[in-house]
Write a protein that binds this DNA or RNA. Structure first.
Lengths: 386, 386
DNA sequence: AAAACTTTGTTTAACCAATATACAAAGTGA
DNA sequence: TCACTTTGTATATTGGTTAAACAAAGTTTT
């Protein structure tokens, strides 16, 4: 059954519009909201009153007059409740406690020594419980948990396939919801990172964003029209297995010449590196010391990284690409060769309005994005398309 | 100013819902529509009455009783008006006169000898005028013109760049609207083809579809969530310039190893073909006659075609890929090698629900899709997202 | 300092689309 | 013929937005 229109829907649309207008712009008066949205002043007053009852909007006293009565300043009550954003990495579990604006209230981190589900689930439980205990008292309490995982996730929060964890069809959402009895959102780590950068990083006012996470592999989160694009069964963005050498190195996925073999940490295995370094951090240290082999390694990777980016640019035509993940820390060494290749290889019209940036949220992008998903699930977002 | 909710919007949403329900399913009663949409019977009656006044819905007399009063069968009045769908190709101009259901009422075709705008525009004008004259008398007359062009088009119908025509920043929509005073929709030929296949070809009930048009180059039309995805400035889908050989053959776009150099008609130039054939039709004839060189040529192209498809599959995760364009006529020779590569190289979870099909609309896909765009522009489509 | 003007936010009455409910019309089956 | 089903319409109610008037609280002009 499709969505039909009635008065309740109208109210939902307008209330949602007002809430998100306040959330994004902060410090608005009712009169200003009426102007910005086109809604009648009376409608704004009524719905703001409801949002105040819901504890989602607060009145912060009078503002500056512009020649008449002083406006009553409203702002979004980011502390109406808290959310937990978590990232499950191969060697580490990290999480944040956030308010509804993505501000980090508390951080937690613990190493992950094994990958079997009981062990990992136990570690997640412990960390979540710790953050819940540490949460300040708010009206709604803990509103939800968002988790970014290194693998494909379907629309029911089932982790279909996470090769680096050895997981297959793991019902992570179900397990966590059963344990904590609050909504849980599971998503691919790159998708979460894309949401984080879109909302709290570089992506303000961007409608088409590509977040490319390069670490032990490469994954992309695709934002289209301001929203996450997940593909037909929820796992688009597996761009690491894009072929950039038709008859290149065989990959574990069954294909050959996959991008991530040349432009992620997997490249270290292939390179004839005469250095005792197989991790990005170490390699960066060598490069910083002026080691030619390390510099060369990054230069080659940067070039390959740019080739893959070019393909994504030609296909998706994004406004902004944000590069995140462990490799983004090697920006100093990767950026030059990468930008050079992109400049040389991209179609002229794509170049014009494209910006390629490195993550501003750094390693927290995925956590913050995952928390944002949980917050949005609570806040809702009803709107009309023409 | 954003879209706000009021009663007019509610009516618009519901009227649109009813109209498109009738359009897609045909032969429905008011009672059945009420069940399908969830709208109240009275609401359906009222809005159907308005749609009848608008001449968009007709009553076709009583249907079969299922144990009670006979239903009154409604159907979409596809002949409320006509649209023109046109495709501008490098060597040919083709167009169709369609009803609002994409049924072709009349076809036209003429060779294109030059590419300068005055000549092409003159040819377009003549063809459109002929079709308008040939149109049957309908309530609304000619509702719009849709044109698919071999190049990038922005949201204002400006042809930004069409290398095969030598066009740059050509205001095609403006010119046609000025001339004919009806709405004109310009789009990339692959985008139009994607819409055609989605609505009138293989794509029924498909939400994520990729239409890959292979001819003198390769372009893709991307349907996401049942809607055309155009990228940030309206020209996503330039997948032909996806690099599949990092240090491959230099391309006119400035890059190297572009997919279309290996898997479109451009490959003929590169191949050491010892045949006097440089066009697909001729080559197919040779292959049909058992010529080994021709078969080999197609087999290689099929393999490369599959490699590019694999990249698209991993990135977009579509439910259905439809292959169109001139090369789709070589299906017999391309399909085997192509499917083999895809089967071997695609990630296991992507394979499960993916179907790769050849165009059913053939060379008419883009025209019919362009006409559909014009029809949809008239009919409107208002809906809600949660 | 008083008067005139501005701006903000609320109150009021009117409007109108969807809905539930009752009802009329037109069929089936025993 | 009678009981039941199904279809489609009529009626009163509900509840959201809106325009317009208004009250409140400023600033600017005289």
């Amino acid at each position: 059954m499709k969505v039909t229109g009635d008065q309740a829907l109208v109210k939902k649309i307008n209330k949602s519009l007002i809430l998100h207008t306040i959330r994004k712009h902060a410090e608005l008066s009712r009169a200003r909201i009426s102007e910005m949205t086109g809604l009648n002043k009376a409608t704004v007053s009524n719905l703001v009153a409801e949002l105040q009852e819901d504890q989602l909007v607060l009145e912060a006293g009078p503002g500056e007059s512009s020649g008449g009565r002083k406006p009553l300043i409203l702002h979004f009550n980011a502390m109406a409740g808290c959310v937990i954003g978590m990232e499950l990495r191969v060697k580490q579990l990290t999480a944040v406690l956030c308010d509804l604006n993505g501000s980090v209230l508390r951080e937690a981190e613990s190493p992950l020594l094994q990958h079997d589900l009981p062990y990992v689930f136990e570690a997640m439980q412990t960390m979540i419980a710790t953050l819940i205990d540490a949460a300040p008292l708010t009206h709604y309490g803990i509103l939800g948990i968002g988790v970014g995982v290194p693998g494909m996730v379907d629309e029911h929060g089932l982790v279909l396939f996470a090769p680096n964890l050895g997981w297959e069809k793991t019902p992570l959402r179900e397990l966590l919801e059963e344990k904590f009895s609050i909504p849980v959102i599971i998503d691919n780590e790159a998708n979460s990172g894309a949401l984080g950068e879109l909302n709290f990083g570089r992506g303000e006012d961007v409608r088409h964003l590509l977040y490319v996470s390069a670490g032990s592999g490469i994954g992309s989160g695709i934002i289209i029209g301001g929203e996450l694009y997940k593909g037909s069964r929820g796992y688009a963005g597996e761009t690491g297995h894009m072929c950039i050498e038709a008859e290149g190195t065989p990959c574990s996925c069954g294909s050959r010449g996959c991008w991530e073999l040349y432009a992620s940490e997997k490249a270290y295995d292939l390179a004839a590196l005469e250095l005792p370094a197989y991790h990005t951090r170490e390699l960066i240290r060598y490069a910083d010391q002026g080691n030619a082999a390390a510099c060369q390694q990054f230069a080659v990777m940067g070039t390959y990284f740019g080739i893959g980016l070019t393909n994504l640019i030609n296909s998706f035509n994004p406004e902004l690409i944000v590069i995140g993940g462990a490799l983004s820390e090697a920006r100093e060494w990767l950026e030059g060769p990468m930008q050079q290749v992109v400049a040389r290889r991209t179609l002229p019209y794509h170049k014009q309005q494209l910006e390629i940036a490195f993550s501003t949220l750094g390693s927290r992008a995925a956590m913050i994005g995952a928390g944002f998903s949980a917050a949005m699930h609570f806040l809702g977002h009803t709107r009309v398309m023409m």
